[in-house]
Simulated assay, not measured.
Amino acid sequence: MNRKPDFSKDAQGLLPAVIQDIWTNKVLMLGYMNEEAFEKTREEKKVTFFSRSKNRLWTKGEESGNFLHLIDIKIDCDSDAILIKAKPEGPTCHTGDDTCWEETNTGKVGFLDYLKHTIRDRKEHPSEKSYTSSLFARGINKVAQKVGEEAVELVIEAKDDNKDLFLGEAADLMFHYITLLEAKNIDLDEVIDVLIKRHK
């Protein structure tokens, strides 16, 4: 986090905090933080607000158990709004809905972007302990070979009825496919752009 929130911009020392699911990218809720709530959130890794109705600090989930676990914090360009990326534990809204906008919080495609950047980091900063780094070190042919092997294994599992084995092979194929794209210096978004154009 490069910027710091400027709580002096509000007469009550409160700034809006937008909460976003780290994996689905859905906006879950909007709350307000003062400096104390902000620091408590950073220290305890559970999202805490200043409740205007209760006139005190309030950790989301302190009564329901539906905590918002802090993953990342971003401050906007004017330093007067906060974006919290969090992992929700249960529904976020007090009504029992996933979000405060009555949206279903499904689809974890945001994790693919996180995975893509993790794989890229293993390529740019190799580690002897990293399986991904070892794949890159062995060259494009080995990475491509692994994609072929995993694709065949997925096809084999598709013919059976073991869901867990099928999911495992599907995950292996996706991981190695994204690794192959990184080995070719192709961003996953470029592939998605092709799909978008075909969808017209």
Rank of each mutant, 00 (worst) to 15 (best):
K123H: 04
G61D: 07
T92I: 07
V143Y: 01
I75G: 06
L165W: 02
S127F: 03
C100R: 02
L167F: 12
K87E: 15
D161K: 10
S53R: 10
F111Y: 08
I71N: 15
I71G: 08
A144T: 05
D164T: 09
E44A: 10
N162T: 07
C77Q: 12
H69C: 08
K60G: 04
R56N: 13
P91V: 12
K74I: 01
D76M: 10
G107E: 13
D113Q: 13
K129R: 14
D72E: 14
V109P: 01
G168F: 01
V143A: 04
K108L: 11
K108N: 08
K159L: 04
F67D: 07
N105G: 08
T59W: 05
L165A: 12
I75L: 03
Y131R: 00
T99E: 04
C100K: 03
K142R: 12
R122D: 01
L165E: 11
A137P: 03
A151F: 00
K129H: 11
R138N: 13
L70H: 03
E169M: 02
E103P: 06
I156V: 10
K129P: 00
H94R: 11
K129Q: 12
P88V: 06
K46G: 12
L167N: 10
S133A: 07
S51W: 05
E157T: 06
P91E: 12
V143M: 03
G65F: 13
R138H: 15
E124A: 09
K129G: 02
V147N: 01
D78Q: 06
A151N: 00
L83R: 06
D76A: 08
N66P: 02
E153Y: 02
L115V: 05
I75F: 11
E157N: 00
C77D: 14
D80E: 09
T106N: 08
L154V: 03
T59L: 10
R52A: 12
P126F: 01
E153F: 00
D97A: 08
K123S: 00
R122T: 01
L154C: 06
T48A: 10
L83N: 14
L115H: 03
G148T: 03
P126Q: 05
L115S: 00
S79N: 15
A86S: 11
K146M: 14
N141S: 15
A158V: 00
I119D: 01
V147W: 02
R56I: 03
L57Q: 05
G107Y: 05
N162K: 13
K163I: 13
E150Y: 00
K60Q: 09
A144N: 13
N105T: 10
E89F: 05
K116Q: 14
T99K: 11
E89M: 11
G90W: 12
E153W: 02
P88Q: 09
N162H: 14
W58I: 12
I82K: 11
G61A: 11
W101C: 07
